[in-house]
Design a protein around this nucleic acid. Structure first.
Lengths: 166, 166
DNA sequence: GGCCGACTGTTGTGGTCGACAACAATCATT
DNA sequence: AATGATTGTTGTCGACCACAACAGTCGGCC
């Protein structure tokens, strides 16, 4: 056995039919009870789709989360950090670091709100707006990859079904 | 300003139209460019579905990943750790810890393979099989929650669309 | 006006998770 | 017998999320 795992004593008994090569346990675990579970399928799909997004936007070094933050700010300039966090379902603690990175890259500014000295008004910089336009082109290319994978009609059905989740 | 963030000097100038209460930036960031992205919708859905699964199976303290491991072993007894890892798309390094926990709870055993002394043949214990039957009942209840949320037909369409991802 | 609860951004901690690299034991092939 | 590949294991790194604490600020209420 490998390394040092605690191991039950082997019963070195009957070997059964030996074919010398293929082990049925290894070759393919195949479809099973998981097939009927939505959560599992969704998890695998989400993994694939994020990997493709990251790969497609690798040249500009933008993650799906960063893209969503930029998009939300662009669509409705000047939001509070709280507003963005609530909209995207991420914690405000996490958004702090996300914005730190985006601010360092000069894509986003935290301006003092004119009406509430606690909060920051978030805006895209000029560079941020220009960059976002490029990001959107790449995101559209990613979306085309999705279509190649599941088909155009399936993609639209997916968007309909998942609409209640924003 | 809050805490110690570097902040531009406030221009304490014109206030503009003050209505005293609602800040347009706060009230609702609303639907925007994210609406057309599959990945975002899927992420939100996956978050919801996992939360519900965890909550529904909280009484037996089983996560979605643990459930998938048990299900795979039960459907095809005696697989290698590598086989399970490949089937579920998780790293074998991670599976080690997962199995450690399941073995400590006496749900799974790592038996020495009869044909390859490097590998372990994974099996459910008697308690493991009994427990899994209960887990499946709760998982079915979770699946009913999904139906309540998106509808029975939508759920089945979802399974069809996502079938290529196993 | 002054007090008190609620909110905002921030920091820190802990836990889960995935990618990666190393390693010993074992296998397969030559 | 020797070499390279595979299996399980350990460890590290970074991303991510949940939670709690905190200072500054707002809002309302007496």
């Amino acid at each position: 056995m490998a390394a040092r795992a605690p191991q039950a004593k082997r019963k070195t008994g009957a070997e059964g039919p030996r074919t010398k090569k293929i082990e049925p346990a290894d070759v393919d675990v195949g479809l099973d009870g998981l097939a009927g579970h939505v959560g599992y399928a969704v998890r695998r799909f989400q993994l694939w789709i994020f990997q493709d997004f990251i790969k497609t936007l690798a040249a500009v070094d933008i993650t799906p989360t960063q893209y969503s933050v930029l998009t939300v700010i662009a669509a409705n300039p000047g939001p509070t950090q709280m507003a963005v966090a609530k909209r995207l379902g991420i914690e405000r603690a996490r958004l702090v670091h996300l914005l730190d990175a985006l601010e360092q890259r000069n894509l986003v500014t935290r301006a003092a709100s004119k009406t509430d000295r606690r909060s920051h008004a978030l805006h895209l910089t000029g560079a941020g707006e220009a960059s976002l336009r490029q990001f959107k082109l790449l995101a559209a290319e990613h979306e085309r990859h999705v279509i190649d994978k599941i088909g155009k009609d399936n993609r639209e059905r997916l968007l309909e079904i998942l609409a209640p989740f924003r």
